[in-house]
Design a protein around this nucleic acid. Structure first.
Lengths: 198, 198
DNA sequence: AACATATGTAAGAGTCTCTAACTTTGACAA
DNA sequence: TTGTCAAAGTTAGAGACTCTTACATATGTT
């Protein structure tokens, strides 16, 4: 995408804009992203995106959807190497969460830091549930259950809060700021073990 | 603050702008906040703030500093009701974290969601360390230690990640979105206990 | 080939941040 | 009391951004 093109029509502007948006969100953060920047990157006028998106937020939402799908693939890959329902499988899922957050902090912040746009968006909650469902399923297996019941829910949710919080502390560089020195892998392992114990 | 005033000079414009900014951040979120809005609320021209602040970010930073101080007071109050080094004291600190986050989500997001402005800001890291120090001190006492050593650090940090993650999941309304039903107080209690066990 | 439709552009309204030049006011020295 | 200065306002405007409207051009169907 980018530079100048020969044709009046672009080819697949929507996809190019989503990719440009993703890159810019990563570079500058979701709040510093501008539609104009994305247009410059894609080599179109600033009015062009409005043929494909309702507004700026919808562009961000598209990036979000694509990212959730990539995250889904990452989780599947992470658990694939481990026997179902083992502590290792669950730890691997936690690691994939942290990896997603730290490898693309801008997009991670976008995905999880926007309540407004997601709350009432079915596509997005569905993606969220699908991803969380992977964890729920592993935790169910960990406790020797076939289905996700209330106990499974109660034991899985703390794992989410833990990796979620760790992700934000990492990408907001709180450990550097407060000069803390923790081994992230060890944290995930120990915390997961402790939260599942008892 | 607000409306129209008789005097050319304002009184304490800086303080009024900080308060207006705080309210607006809470109403619209840190990214939707505008200097213009704050000016309208304070009843001054849009150029006035630049006598008191370098730029928009510095206005947000001022809100942040004030909020960190309030949060400090909240933590002190929370732990005051419990014997030092008890599980209850630590749980009370966790509750105060969640309370701060959920009672003013906009400001909480501002305080913890901005890495850029804080990383290199001494005033802010100092406030952060002071607040985190309250937890560290309680955890040290919990393990029967006089000083904060490496083990204390390792056992305290997971508690932070847990309440931090829970805070964000709550204010981003992920539990509502995914239709999860958890008792927040119970979560804090059980997770704290599990993370400190063993 | 003709037309409808999809997808682009140009121009502009309205908002925002921040700057520059000017104005008012209060404080303090003479 | 008065003159002067610095602090703290204002007005005007540059430059950027979002989004709309009216117009232009390509594409596909018949």
């Amino acid at each position: 995408m980018a530079a100048k093109r020969a044709n009046y029509h672009h080819g697949d502007l929507r996809a190019d804009l989503v990719e440009a948006t993703r890159q810019l969100v990563e570079e500058k953060g979701p709040d510093r992203f501008s539609v104009s920047d994305a247009c410059r990157a894609a080599g179109v006028s600033t009015a062009a995106p409005y043929r494909h998106f309702e507004d700026r937020d919808e562009m961000l939402l598209a990036v979000c959807a694509e990212a959730m799908d990539r995250f889904h693939a990452l989780m599947l890959e992470a658990q694939a190497g481990h026997a179902r329902g083992t502590l290792e499988a669950i730890i691997a899922l936690g690691r994939s969460y942290i990896q997603f957050a730290t490898s693309e902090p801008g997009v991670f912040r976008l995905c999880f830091g926007i309540a407004r746009e997601h709350g009432d968006n079915f596509e997005m909650t569905e993606r969220g549930m699908r991803n969380y469902g992977i964890l729920l399923s592993q935790v169910a297996a960990f406790f020797g259950k076939d289905a996700v019941d209330e106990e499974v829910m109660d034991r899985a949710f703390p794992l989410w809060t833990m990796v979620h919080g760790l992700s934000f502390l990492l990408i907001d560089e709180k450990m550097e700021a407060l000069n803390l020195n923790h081994d992230v892998d060890a944290l995930i392992r120990d915390n997961t073990r402790r939260l599942l114990a008892n």
